[in-house]
Design a protein around this nucleic acid. Sequence first.
DNA 1: CTGAAAGCGCTTACAG
DNA 2: CTGAAAGCGCTTACAG
Lengths: 339, 339
Amino acid sequence: MKTVAAHAGVSAQTVSRVLRGTGYVSEATRARVLASVAAVGYRPNAVGRSLRATRTPMVGLLITDITNPFYATLHKSTEAVFRERGLTLMLLNSDDDPATERTQLDLVSSYRPSGLLVAPAVHSTLTTEDLAGFGAAVLVSRTLPGLAVPSVVTNEPEAMGEATRALLDAGHRRIVAVLGPRDASTTLRRESGYRDAVRAAGAEPIVRYTDQTGPGARAAIRRALQADPGLTAAVGFNAPVTEGILRGLRDEGLECPRDVSVVGFTDAPWMSFYPPPITVVGQPVAAMGELAARLLLDVLDGKPVTPGLHVVPSVLLRRESVAPPRPRPHDEKRTPCTS
Amino acid sequence: MKTVAAHAGVSAQTVSRVLRGTGYVSEATRARVLASVAAVGYRPNAVGRSLRATRTPMVGLLITDITNPFYATLHKSTEAVFRERGLTLMLLNSDDDPATERTQLDLVSSYRPSGLLVAPAVHSTLTTEDLAGFGAAVLVSRTLPGLAVPSVVTNEPEAMGEATRALLDAGHRRIVAVLGPRDASTTLRRESGYRDAVRAAGAEPIVRYTDQTGPGARAAIRRALQADPGLTAAVGFNAPVTEGILRGLRDEGLECPRDVSVVGFTDAPWMSFYPPPITVVGQPVAAMGELAARLLLDVLDGKPVTPGLHVVPSVLLRRESVAPPRPRPHDEKRTPCTS
DNA sequence: CTGAAAGCGCTTACAG
DNA sequence: CTGAAAGCGCTTACAG
């Protein structure tokens, strides 16, 4: 900046004013400075700016795993909102591990960001004080009990209830819920919706917890099927789990929906063209990201933001993976329809 | 840091030395400083450090779209390498748009990062000089003609040739290649492998360019099928395109592999349990990311790095979407096998 | 409308 | 083994 100032024959402050478009600058000097900027090949240094401002125009996005499409979409949708406000988004993976989460939090905090968006790890140790240091913090997708921070979630209990009722209405009574980690807030919320719906229909809840991955769910559904020959339907916790369920069914020589009906939670592109197309709770991921980003901006702008749950509704996408139940064959294995 | 120094009764430089673990510090003062750090609740400020060092311990990763699983995996694998070297990874989306790419590059450059990893946008305007400003730059997945920068790619021509030969060997002669944007380096490289293989078998290349999305590919394969009733096979450019091809086939009442055989490029989880499981070129995405990250570190360490292509081999995963050709029915539409 | 001074939080030489 | 000084590149008051 000093070089530009010297070249234009003005002071560094004037260059700063021109560059920031702030305060009064005569049209003549403005033009001269701009010409010098180009001539000298000046590139602004965000580090100097941030140090002086004691805040970096950056928001941290701390998630568990970017290869989960849910979080990739979250990144994309929040980045769009922040970008038009001149805020950079800094992505950090916690690997769903509380220790890594803590390390990553310290890292992003060392850059003195303007705010933080978090989907906490399963046994997260984050406290209100941890987040208070960020000025503005918003939780997204997963909540943390006892945190006085705005949280954007979907109406998981209601959506999971509706998904379960789709199976109950088709006549199913023995429906297994293949869930995520026992203590995740998402598991708790989805499980309650499932349990309430099943009980309201006078049936018995059947629950399996998993690590919310495809392989974990595949093993879990196989064990459930072997343990209970009366099972005629399954609800999946997320997209990988739904995939695992379908693989597990095939392992057991069972067909969907002829032998076992399936409803998933969280849509994926393949679900709409898989045979059969999968009935699934479609989460408004992009809308959740946008809302979370806007709440964060509101906090930065000093607008009042409720520290509780902010709910974005999901919709049940009815496709073809639900059929009336029929007794499962116990002794003979079937092979899938090969085309 | 001044507060810590005052609390410990030492100078700020001593605190700095303790914190960086550099230079001589007596065990006694070390302990005293560490105690003060905890007592005062000191949090390091990366901005001050970066400003003084004129470099930020950060690497930019500029890709086109994080919701493409290829790039999500790339982020994860490179981050792991950089994290253990104390480097933060800063993710930036270009939306595959040269203007946005330029903006994002200026942004990351303003943080004075230690290096840059780029998968250039399709009509990228990046020059060697642009990248030289980053100290260390490595291209990944996509190359740019005339750039004197190391580039990590897979053996696309050979892999695409092998994929095409899988169809030729099954007896196919009219094979359409549904490719990406006409000018992308990935398109050029995959197209050449396809053309060479087809020509070597004495057949005629049939090529369709798309925007490399599912909907684009779906429309393209339908037009190709309608234009050429003799078509019995298709190769897809990437995972979304392969999905689009399968949807397009279904639109046309055709079945894979009975009516049309399909081979894809880039694996996706659903491809191994879709009926039929899809034969596909599996790209070693994580290995590509790791190699790119290590090359970048080598450049930073002053080790000699060849500025040309660094090739990581792909493998053809033979599954069940390839069958011998049979004449396509022209007058009657078929419905897929519904189970 | 423009400039001189100070300082954001660190680390790099340089002394002792 | 430890400290005083200077400065990384910017912006914030404060003068004029």
